[in-house]
Simulated scan of single mutants.
Amino acid sequence: MADLKKVCNVTFENNFTSVGNGGTIKVNGVQYSSPTSQFQVVEGNTITAEAEYYYHINGINYTFLNWSDGSTSLSHAFSISQHEAIKANYRGKPTNNGEYIHFGTQVGQPIVIYWTDNPNANVTQYQIWRKVKHNGVMGSEQLIATVSRGTGQYTDRDYVLTSGYTDDIIYYDVRGYYSVEGTYSDPDYVSVYGAEPLYKSGLSGKPAEYSIGAYPNPFNPATTIKYQLPERGHVTIKLYDVTGKEVKELVNEIRDSGYYEVELNGKDLSSGVYICTIKANKYNKSIKLMMVK
């Protein structure tokens, strides 16, 4: 009688935080639904179970973390000494599939990032990450904003959209936050052509070239026109309507090289398209402005 060993009842199940214990598990090479029925194992003997590595459930990617005894091997032999329920633990992160990240289409305007919310309501917010490849050199990633679920878009005013490659390629990643487990989706960057806008603050020193831009555009009732001069000269900036009639003279004076701005107040203008023209030394440039009321 002293040699008699007890028979232990053993079950296996998957463990998805707050979601349940579905899925499948192989026991001794045979696949069963989770949770499994009881297996009877003589005390001191072993039984082998194999977990699935990956599941996708309602917008969350679950990957195998460990067994309840701490083993991180998908296939693991358990030495049984008592009745027990053995769990395969999983960690969940929001999926990137279905975000459908895309961008606004207005060239010369701040880059607007759009996305679709994760179907899981427990993905409650999103981090917006950015990294910039400038002249072929990739910079470090930077967290630029955190927005709530339901926002669906973010405007990055540090860069404007361009129609093709200039000096920069801008990469964005929208990372969902799964509040149940405190996890974020894995990095998944999407790129767009962009450039630093003329109106970006902090410019100093002597400009390398002539340039002019306006923000906001379209505008109501005012916009700021910023321009740069690489050398001293006589500058005129005028506003014309689409028929070519002069509407306003904004600048008419000699200025040193540098960065300048002038406000266009359009409260007395009708809605429509206008042409803003700068002449400085041999430089001539016109840009379209749109007044919207």
Score class of each variant (00 low, 15 high):
residue 280 A to N: 10
residue 241 D to N: 15
residue 237 I to S: 04
residue 93 K to A: 08
residue 140 S to E: 11
residue 29 G to Q: 07
residue 205 G to N: 09
residue 88 A to H: 03
residue 41 V to Y: 05
residue 156 D to Y: 02
residue 10 V to Q: 04
residue 132 V to G: 02
residue 20 G to R: 03
residue 261 E to T: 08
residue 4 L to N: 09
residue 169 I to H: 00
residue 91 R to C: 00
residue 83 H to K: 07
residue 212 I to F: 02
residue 192 V to S: 00
residue 235 V to F: 04
residue 218 P to H: 13
residue 255 R to K: 15
residue 188 D to M: 11
residue 272 G to M: 11
residue 146 T to H: 05
residue 257 S to A: 15
residue 158 D to W: 09
residue 194 G to Q: 09
residue 287 I to Y: 10
residue 196 E to S: 13
residue 144 I to G: 01
residue 241 D to V: 03
residue 241 D to M: 02
residue 185 S to D: 06
residue 119 P to N: 11
residue 272 G to C: 09
residue 40 Q to R: 12
residue 65 L to C: 00
residue 226 K to Y: 04
residue 220 N to C: 13
residue 164 G to T: 12
residue 110 P to G: 00
residue 198 L to I: 15
residue 200 K to N: 14
residue 121 A to M: 12
residue 164 G to P: 00
residue 197 P to Y: 10
residue 73 S to F: 10
residue 180 V to R: 11
residue 54 Y to I: 10
residue 36 T to Q: 03
residue 196 E to P: 07
residue 142 Q to S: 14
residue 258 G to M: 09
residue 221 P to F: 10
residue 184 Y to R: 13
residue 233 G to W: 11
residue 119 P to W: 10
residue 6 K to L: 02
residue 259 Y to R: 09
residue 223 T to R: 09
residue 218 P to I: 12
residue 232 R to E: 12
residue 133 K to I: 13
residue 147 V to D: 01
residue 250 L to D: 04
residue 153 Q to G: 00
residue 271 S to K: 11
residue 126 Y to T: 08
residue 119 P to L: 13
residue 277 T to K: 15
residue 197 P to A: 09
residue 193 Y to V: 08
residue 20 G to F: 03
residue 287 I to A: 06
residue 246 E to V: 10
residue 21 N to S: 15
residue 156 D to R: 04
residue 113 I to A: 00
residue 259 Y to A: 00
residue 113 I to N: 01
residue 277 T to S: 12
residue 17 T to E: 12
residue 99 E to V: 07
residue 225 I to S: 07
residue 34 S to H: 04
residue 48 T to N: 02
residue 202 G to D: 01
residue 18 S to G: 00
residue 263 E to D: 08
residue 138 M to C: 06
residue 29 G to W: 12
residue 165 Y to M: 07
residue 20 G to L: 02
residue 63 T to Q: 09
residue 269 L to R: 03
residue 122 N to V: 04
residue 136 G to A: 10
residue 165 Y to I: 08
residue 146 T to W: 08
residue 280 A to H: 13
residue 208 A to G: 12
residue 131 K to W: 11
residue 160 V to L: 10
residue 186 D to G: 06
residue 170 I to F: 12
residue 267 K to D: 14
residue 71 S to Q: 08
residue 25 I to S: 01
residue 175 R to D: 00
residue 57 I to A: 02
residue 211 S to M: 06
residue 186 D to S: 15
residue 4 L to W: 06
residue 101 I to N: 00
residue 12 F to Q: 05
residue 76 H to T: 05
residue 204 S to M: 11
residue 139 G to I: 00
residue 289 L to Y: 09
residue 85 A to M: 11
residue 57 I to D: 02
residue 59 G to H: 04
residue 27 V to I: 14
residue 215 Y to T: 11
residue 11 T to Y: 01
residue 133 K to M: 13
residue 167 D to L: 09
residue 173 D to A: 08
residue 137 V to Y: 08
residue 2 A to V: 13
residue 275 I to M: 14
residue 256 D to R: 06
residue 213 G to F: 04
residue 118 N to Q: 07
residue 284 N to C: 05
residue 103 F to S: 01
residue 265 N to L: 05
residue 91 R to M: 08
residue 256 D to I: 05
residue 135 N to K: 15
residue 27 V to G: 02
residue 156 D to Q: 01
residue 197 P to M: 09
residue 75 S to L: 06
residue 199 Y to W: 15
